[in-house]
Measured scan of single mutants.
Amino acid sequence: TRVETATETAWISLVTALHLVLGLSAVLGLLLLRWQFPAHYRRLRHALW
């Protein structure tokens, strides 16, 4: 049971790290898009909202 718990903890930390990385890359990508294509971003936002 001790090994299982350790594996579970490792998986949880791995998944958390993955989610953090994905979230950060998504935010960075959005910022980059907004910085590179302001007109396109505004049009996209206008279409979405």
Score class of each variant (00 low, 15 high):
Thr7Arg: 10
Ala39Lys: 13
Thr9Pro: 14
Gly29Ala: 15
Leu48Ala: 07
Ala17His: 01
His46Thr: 12
Ala39Ser: 13
Arg2Gln: 14
Arg45Glu: 05
Thr9Arg: 12
Gln36Pro: 07
Leu48Met: 13
Val27Ile: 14
Val27Glu: 01
Leu30His: 05
Ile12Asp: 00
Leu22Asp: 00
Arg45His: 07
Leu18Gln: 05
Thr1Asp: 07
Ala47His: 10
Leu24Arg: 01
Tyr41Thr: 11
Val3Thr: 01
Phe37His: 04
His40Leu: 08
Gln36Arg: 15
Leu48Asn: 06
Tyr41Ala: 15
Leu24Ile: 10
Arg42Met: 09
Ser13Phe: 13
Leu24His: 04
Arg2Cys: 10
Ser13Leu: 11
Thr7Asn: 10
Gln36Leu: 12
Leu20Arg: 02
Pro38Phe: 08
Arg43Glu: 07
Ala10Glu: 14
His19Ala: 04
Tyr41Pro: 04
Arg45Ser: 06
Phe37Pro: 00
Leu18Met: 09
Pro38Thr: 08
Thr9Ser: 12
Arg2Ile: 13
Ser13Cys: 13
His40Gly: 13
Ala10Val: 10
Thr7Tyr: 12
Trp11Arg: 01
Tyr41Met: 14
Ala17Trp: 03
Leu33Asp: 04
Tyr41Asn: 04
Thr16Leu: 10
Ser13Gln: 09
Gly23Val: 14
Trp49Ala: 06
Ala47Phe: 10
Val21Asp: 02
Val21Gly: 06
Trp35Asp: 08
Leu33Tyr: 07
His46Ile: 05
Ala26Val: 11
Arg2Tyr: 13
Leu48Lys: 04
Leu18Arg: 02
Glu8Gly: 03
Arg45Cys: 06
Leu30Thr: 08
Ala26Thr: 13
Leu14Gln: 01
Leu32Cys: 01
Thr1Glu: 10
Trp11Pro: 06
Glu4Gly: 08
Glu8Thr: 06
Gly29Lys: 02
Leu22Ile: 12
Leu44Ala: 10
Arg34Pro: 07
Leu33Lys: 01
Leu18Ile: 07
Leu30Met: 11
Thr7Val: 13
Leu32Met: 08
Val27Cys: 11
Pro38Asp: 15
Glu4Lys: 11
Leu18Pro: 02
Ala6Phe: 06
Leu22Phe: 08
Gly23Ser: 09
Thr16Gln: 00
Arg34Leu: 02
Leu28Cys: 03
Leu31Ile: 12
Gln36Lys: 12
Ala17Val: 10
Ser25Val: 12
Gly29Tyr: 01
Ala10Phe: 03
Leu31Asn: 02
Gly23Asp: 04
Leu44Met: 09
Leu28Phe: 08
Ala26Tyr: 02
Leu24Glu: 06
Leu32Arg: 04
His40Phe: 14
Val21Pro: 01
Glu8Pro: 09
Leu32Pro: 07
Leu20Trp: 04
Leu24Pro: 07
Val27Asp: 01
Thr5Ala: 01
Phe37Cys: 07
Arg43Pro: 05
Ala17Cys: 13
Trp11Lys: 05
Trp35Lys: 15
Val15Lys: 05
Leu24Met: 13
Ala6Tyr: 07
Ala6Gln: 13
Val21Glu: 02
Val21Met: 10
Pro38Gly: 10
Leu33Met: 11
Leu48Phe: 07
Leu44Gly: 02
Leu32Phe: 06
Thr16Ser: 11
Val3Ser: 01
Gly29Leu: 14
Thr9Met: 13
Ala17Pro: 03
Thr9Asn: 10
Thr16Pro: 04
Leu28Pro: 01
Ser25Pro: 05
Leu33Trp: 07
Thr16Val: 14
Leu44Asn: 02
Val27Arg: 02
Leu14Phe: 00
Trp35Leu: 15
Glu4Leu: 11
Thr9Phe: 11
Ala39Asn: 14
Leu32Thr: 07
Ala47Lys: 14
Leu31Gln: 08
Leu22Tyr: 04
Pro38Leu: 09
Arg34Gly: 05
Thr1Met: 14
Leu31Tyr: 13
Arg43Ile: 09
Arg34Ile: 07
Leu32Ser: 09
Leu20Tyr: 03
Trp11Glu: 01
Thr5Ser: 02
Leu28Trp: 06
Ala39Val: 14
Arg42Pro: 00
Gly23Gln: 04
Val21Gln: 04
Leu30Pro: 04
Ala47Asn: 10
Ser13Pro: 04
Leu44Phe: 13
His19Gly: 03
Val3Pro: 01
Trp11Phe: 11
Trp11Tyr: 12
Ala39Tyr: 12
Thr9Val: 13
Ala17Tyr: 04
Arg42Trp: 10
Thr9Ile: 13
Leu24Ser: 04
Gly29Ile: 11
Thr9Gln: 12
Glu4Arg: 10
Gln36His: 15
Ile12Lys: 12
Thr7Ala: 13
Glu8Met: 00
Trp11Gln: 00
Trp11Val: 12
Arg42Ser: 13
Pro38His: 12
His46Pro: 07
Leu24Tyr: 05
Ala6Asn: 09
Leu28Gln: 02
His19Arg: 04
Thr7Gln: 11
Gly29Phe: 11
Ser25Glu: 01
Ile12Cys: 06
Trp35Ser: 15
Leu22Pro: 03
Val15Leu: 11
Leu44Tyr: 08
Leu22Glu: 05
Leu18Glu: 03
Val15Ile: 13
Ala17Glu: 00
Ala47Pro: 06
Leu44Lys: 02
Ala6His: 07
Arg43Phe: 09
Ala10Ser: 13
Arg43Thr: 11
Val27Tyr: 12
Ala47Ile: 08
Glu4Ile: 11
Glu4Trp: 10
Leu22Gln: 03
Tyr41His: 09
Arg34Glu: 03
